[in-house]
Amino acid sequence: MSFIEVKQISKTFKLAKKKSGLLEAFKSFFKREYFYVKAVSDVSFSIEKGEIVGYIGPNGAGKSTTIKILSGILNPDSGECIIDGLVPWQNRREFVRKIGVVFGQRSQLWWDIPTEDTFLLLKDIYDIPDFEYQKNKEDLIDKLNLKDIINIPVRQLSLGQRMRCEIAASLLHNPEILFLDEPTIGLDAVSKQLVRDFIKRLNKEKKTTIILTSHDMSDITSLSKRIILIGKGRVLYDGNLKKLKNKYEDEKYISIKTKEKLDLKCTGLKSKKKSVDGYDLVIDTKVISISDILNKISKRVKIDDVDIENESIDNLIVKLYEDYKI
């Protein structure tokens, strides 16, 4: 059996209908109408110890609901979930010692006092022995470069500094599983890189299992080999990120700079769009090679400049969403 085993979990929320208009608001005051939203349906997957999994999907796809179920905050309507031998929502107190959760949008640090004080509270909450606490703290300070910021009131920290403290706070008790819910949201490039490097290192050195959600695809590509794509509450793709890329790798983007008008029709040309100073083309390299198409174009117009690109991972995701109609 896997470290994390999720079997066919479903969760439906009952929400009150909200209509616009004063009259409608008045009506709904007396008689509420409800509708049901299937947040997740039949979600199954298993994760091994020490894996890093990117959990992706558009807004409202059911990512947060899944994370909440896995971390024991919510219990599903049906289905099973066993993590390291425990059912998250049944053995709450025992289970939460094994996990650390970072919500990118919500802080767990105390606003008016230095991070180190929050650490002390966490030490008591998780009953971390002095020796272990000291060791973990120093280790985290070192790796996340917190030395100069740990004694400053949190409200005075920058977003990037705060996120580093946030991550450290979630790891003081040495969790076996770390949930990262959009850990790099709003961070600058340097902070992002620092956070990513740290996560990689953590996974390598401590074999921490990491489940990561993010809308920033570069987070996912740099951290995880495996992704689970979820949309409208269902698992659409679960597997290797590279394979998914290969599926779309035959397509190339060619942008051409030219002042002349290009009239081109051939097999393998999937689309042609006029851009500000030329044309954007998409070709299928299984049908037509890059040199062939460039050859054809250069015969027709004078090319000032040319740019050839692979499908970007962001585009890939947009395409995936389109393919799966989510």
């Binding site: 024991g72 709450r92 919500r106 909450i125």
Partner: peptide
């Protein structure tokens, strides 16, 4: 309202 209760549920106390 602010979602802080979720955090409480994540603590072993």
């Amino acid at each position: 309202i602010e979602g802080g209760f979720d955090r409480i549920l994540l603590r072993p106390k």
